[in-house]
């Protein structure tokens, strides 16, 4: 680049040069959209809904959630039915009707985490925040989408698992009717617990921002720490264990708990769990709003 054509800037254009800003056309931001309304939360929700369903990981995760949740419950009930009937397991047959939850909760965590960490991983988060600078709305919309989808997926999975698993238990005469104590509550509770876990993972993802790290922390908190905590000594140790999110929230999703650690009553536990999720989400929103995207 030396010599020649660098001078050819500022070609003749109407209204340049001496023109002031005054004779520049004022553009109406709404000119392409007659009668358009200012976007509100519904628009943000719609956007998040579109985002959620237009990546492959969503369908994979939900497929896996159903397969693990309903499939494993059925499989384990088939394998354990005769032992349960003989009373050899030392567990109530009711505990086995939601056995697959142990694994379906992992996919709920993964889905909730990915909804935000995949945006950080790809740089999408910048597009999201430029489109919707009110970041609290973004998080709220994501939480609503996750709650609705995971609630439905959780209930559907639990019902399918119940139908499949109970068929084998019935054959051995230890099946439970829908009207039996805790069965309907657990089927509904599956949806509630998984929805709560999804939002929990969303909050963890927002705070940590890296998929692998957020997933590890989420799973460790819900599964590993939850189990290890039962080894803590004394009544305070028992309380810590009972109050940890996985233990507190899980009870509502099970017809009857497995033997071992003490758990809170189902709805009390879910109340604690919901409060913990809400608190974590609040912290995540506050951090997200302050942070550079």
């Amino acid at each position: 680049m030396s010599a020649t054509p660098t001078v050819s800037t500022a070609p003749a254009r109407p209204g340049t040069g001496s023109s002031s800003a005054a004779d520049v056309v004022r553009l109406d931001p709404n000119r392409h959209v007659p009668g358009v309304r200012q976007p509100g939360f519904a628009q943000v929700l719609h956007a998040e809904w579109v985002k959620f369903w237009t990546v492959r990981s969503t369908r994979w995760s939900l497929g896996l959630l159903f397969l693990l949740g309903a499939g494993l419950t059925t499989l384990v009930c088939w394998a354990a039915a005769s032992d349960l009937a003989a009373g050899d397991t030392g567990e109530a047959p009711a505990a086995f009707l939601t056995w697959g939850l142990l694994f379906s909760q992992l996919t709920a965590l993964a889905l909730g985490t990915l909804v935000v960490t995949s945006e950080y991983g790809t740089g999408m988060i910048r597009a999201t925040v430029t489109a919707v600078p009110r970041r609290g709305r973004v998080v709220a919309a994501k939480a609503v989408v996750l709650t609705v989808v995971l609630f439905v997926a959780g209930v559907v999975t639990a019902v399918a698992g119940y139908l499949g698993g109970n068929w084998f238990l019935d054959r051995e005469g230890v099946g439970l009717a829908l009207s039996d104590d805790g069965v309907l509550r657990a089927l509904l509770g599956n949806g509630l617990y998984l929805a709560g876990l999804g939002v929990f993972a969303l909050a963890t993802g927002l705070l940590i921002r890296h998929t692998a790290a957020a997933l590890t922390v989420g799973m460790a908190l819900v599964l590993v720490v939850g189990n290890v905590a039962y080894a803590l000594p004394g009544t305070w140790g028992e309380w810590v264990a009972k109050l940890l999110p996985g233990n507190a929230g899980g009870a509502v999703a099970q017809v009857a708990p497995f033997n071992g650690g003490a758990v809170l009553a189902p709805w009390t536990g879910f109340g604690v769990f919901a409060a913990e999720v809400a608190a974590l989400l609040l912290v995540a929103v506050l951090v997200f709003r302050r942070r550079d995207a």
């Binding site: 309304r37 719609h46 956007a47 237009t54 740089g123 597009a127």
Partner: peptide
């Protein structure tokens, strides 16, 4: 780049349009 590699170009524009009430 500020987009998800798994999403189609149209879908990327779809959610953006939805978020700001663009037809």
């Amino acid at each position: 780049r500020a987009l998800h590699p798994g999403r189609s170009a149209r879908d990327h524009l779809r959610w953006l349009a939805a978020s700001n009430g663009i037809p």
